[in-house]
Design a binder for these strands. Structure first.
Length: 224
DNA sequence: GTCCGGTGTG
DNA sequence: CACACGGGAC
């Protein structure tokens, strides 16, 4: 399995190159982006981030100070804006109350306790927690999303369980890859790219760089 | 399972 | 017009 996963990674990287997810953005922008992108198109998230920056709401402390209805108006374009404003406020409050607003102190925690604490915050589920782990806190915690699951299922990489959960998909990577944040960072972004580019809801198998490794794709291209 | 929701695309 | 979007709370 380890060899298979690395083969897939190398194929995707060769096909698409580095994806630059959250490149050079500070932890604050990664966290806000990870929350705002929940079931929302990234383009709409970027508009919301731009409005926050322009409005001067560009630090956890600023988010903590700004009234929730005003924050909601700033992030309107990302959708679910009332719910997301509440989530942003919850995160900022958590760091303000427990770490004097200092993210570095929060992220200094070891990987497992940090993830548990992230999950305890309103609005942070498993995927968002792992986004923050990898792209903000620089911790190796593989991000699983609907795209990753879809491709894994088509490729016969579904965890050997009756009803695999998030942790089961994640374990496929944690059990078979080196615990390297940079690898997890790029690999997840490449799954995402591939799902949009080729392994879409209706897959485009003919030009897929993983076709010879994919039972679903071979069946589909054989039938015509 | 239902609710939260504006924006871009076919 | 419908549909998807870098999910999570309840």
């Amino acid at each position: 399995m380890a060899t298979r996963l690395m083969e897939i990674y190398q194929r995707l990287y060769a096909a698409y190159g580095p994806q630059h997810w959250w490149p050079g953005d500070g932890p604050f922008e990664v966290i806000v982006g990870a929350i705002l992108t929940q079931s929302a198109a990234w383009n709409n998230v970027e508009m919301a981030l731009a409005r926050m920056r322009t409005a001067g709401c560009w630090s956890l402390n600023a988010v903590h100070q700004l009234p929730e209805p005003e924050l909601a108006e700033l992030v309107r374009s990302s959708g679910y804006f009332n719910a997301k404003a509440r989530k942003l406020k919850a995160f900022a409050a958590h760091v303000a109350l427990n770490y004097q607003g200092d993210l570095d102190r929060f992220f200094a925690k070891p990987t497992a306790p940090l993830r548990e604490e992230l999950l305890s915050i309103h609005g942070i589920g498993e995927e968002t927690a792992d986004d923050i782990m990898v792209y903000a806190a620089n911790k190796p915690s593989f991000v699983i999303d609907t795209y990753t699951r879809r491709i894994m299922d088509r490729m016969g990489l579904t965890p050997d369980k009756t009803r695999p959960k998030y942790a089961d998909y994640q374990a496929v990577f944690h059990d078979n890859l080196p615990q390297e944040t940079q690898l997890y960072n790029e690999f997840h972004a490449l799954w995402d790219r591939h799902a949009k580019e080729s392994c879409a809801k209706t897959p485009i198998c003919e030009t897929c760089c993983l076709l010879d490794l994919c039972p679903t794709g071979q069946k589909l291209t054989a039938d015509g």
